[in-house]
Amino acid sequence: MKPGETPEQAKARAQRLRDHAAQARSLAGSLGTALDSTVAKATAEGVWSGPYAERVTGALRGYKGSLEGMAQGLQTSARTWESEADLLDQEAAAAARSGGK
């Protein structure tokens, strides 16, 4: 808990962290797969070939990897936020038992 924070404020902050974690998980799900179908179509056999096609599909694969990395980062952040929320709830409960200090 932050200095001067009441147990109720800490619990509210913990809930905000959980809400942000849920939103991050939702975004991570769509972000990580955003280019899957595009890359699959662009790299399908017989769709196109040549140096330009290779550059474009290579770039698409790179962007896909970047998005997947960002999605993993969001998932990691979400886990961290939920852990922090759990700790806040424990601290708030302990503070409430001891009279809010």
Rank of each mutant, 00 (worst) to 15 (best):
K2F: 11
P3K: 09
P3C: 05
G4V: 03
E5P: 12
T6W: 04
T6H: 06
E8H: 05
A12E: 10
A12R: 03
A12C: 01
R13E: 04
Q15R: 06
R16I: 09
R18H: 05
D19P: 07
D19C: 03
D19E: 12
D19T: 10
H20P: 07
H20L: 14
H20I: 13
A21R: 01
A22W: 04
Q23R: 15
Q23K: 14
A24G: 05
A24I: 06
S26H: 14
S26C: 08
S26G: 15
L27Y: 11
L27N: 11
A28T: 01
G29V: 12
S30I: 14
S30N: 14
G32S: 06
A34C: 06
D36G: 06
S37T: 09
S37F: 08
T38P: 00
T38R: 01
V39W: 00
V39D: 02
V39R: 05
A40M: 04
A42W: 05
T43N: 02
A44N: 10
G46C: 06
G46Y: 09
V47L: 10
G50L: 00
P51I: 08
Y52C: 11
Y52S: 15
Y52L: 14
E54I: 02
E54H: 11
E54T: 09
T57N: 06
T57G: 03
A59D: 13
A59S: 14
L60R: 00
R61F: 02
Y63E: 13
Y63S: 14
K64I: 00
K64N: 12
G65T: 06
S66D: 15
L67N: 03
L67R: 06
E68G: 13
E68I: 09
G69W: 03
M70K: 15
M70R: 15
A71L: 02
A71R: 02
L74A: 05
Q75R: 13
T76L: 08
T76N: 08
S77I: 11
T80Q: 14
E82L: 05
E82I: 06
S83R: 07
S83T: 13
S83P: 08
A85L: 01
A85C: 03
D86V: 08
D86T: 11
L87T: 14
L87G: 15
L88G: 01
L88V: 00
D89M: 00
D89I: 03
Q90R: 09
E91M: 12
E91G: 10
A94L: 10
A95W: 03
A95D: 02
A96N: 06
A96Q: 10
A96R: 05
A96G: 05
R97M: 13
R97G: 08
S98H: 13
G99W: 03
G99R: 06
G100V: 09
G100L: 09
K101D: 15
